[in-house]
């Protein structure tokens, strides 16, 4: 079974694997990552997962994620697992915790917000209640986390 998985999405020698992304959200994860073209990236979508039914997976060679990237991915793929690979071995495996604060990758849905008229990063405080919400630091409007869009 493991062998079949490896055939579907190649193993990487060194880098980061984002596993257990809810099916269909891998491309949103890719949008958050600043990929320079130097790193090999492998994407698997709609794979069978014992844990979440169907999942997406993203593997990036020779790359670790910044704190901002981890926080933003946690917002759109809270079920995902972050895996660090060294020499084909898993050296660290953690879940994405919903952050209290995110900066940069999210678009404020309010067209009158200053983050949509000046070239400045958006900032949101997250309330991780049963239904998670995000409040814009600037315009102070509150939105459902699931309604937020990624800045491409």
């Amino acid at each position: 079974m493991n062998q079949i998985k490896m055939i579907k999405v190649n193993a990487i020698k060194n880098g980061t694997v984002i596993d257990h992304i809810a099916a269909g959200k891998a491309l949103k994860v890719i949008d958050i990552l600043t990929l320079t073209g130097n790193n090999a990236v492998m994407i698997g979508m709609n794979l069978v997962s014992n844990r979440i039914g169907k999942k997406d997976i993203v593997k990036i060679e020779n790359r670790e994620l910044s704190k901002e990237e981890v926080n933003s991915i946690a917002l759109i793929a809270p079920s995902a697992t972050l895996i660090i690979i060294k020499d084909f071995e898993v050296v660290n495996k953690t879940s994405f915790d919903m952050p209290e604060y995110v900066e940069e990758h999210i678009i404020c849905p309010n067209p009158k917000c200053i983050t949509n008229s000046e070239d400045i990063p958006s900032k949101f405080y997250i309330n991780n209640a049963e239904i998670a919400t995000a409040r814009c630091v600037y315009c102070e409007k509150k939105y459902l986390v699931e309604d937020l869009r990624i800045k491409i």
């Binding site: 309010n110 009158k112 917000c113 200053i114 983050t115 630091v137 600037y138 315009c139 102070e140 409007k141």
Partner: peptide, 9 residues
């Protein structure tokens, strides 16, 4: 300002 969040910025 008519822009929301302008003073915070």
């Amino acid at each position: 300002s008519p822009i929301e969040g302008a003073a915070r910025y």
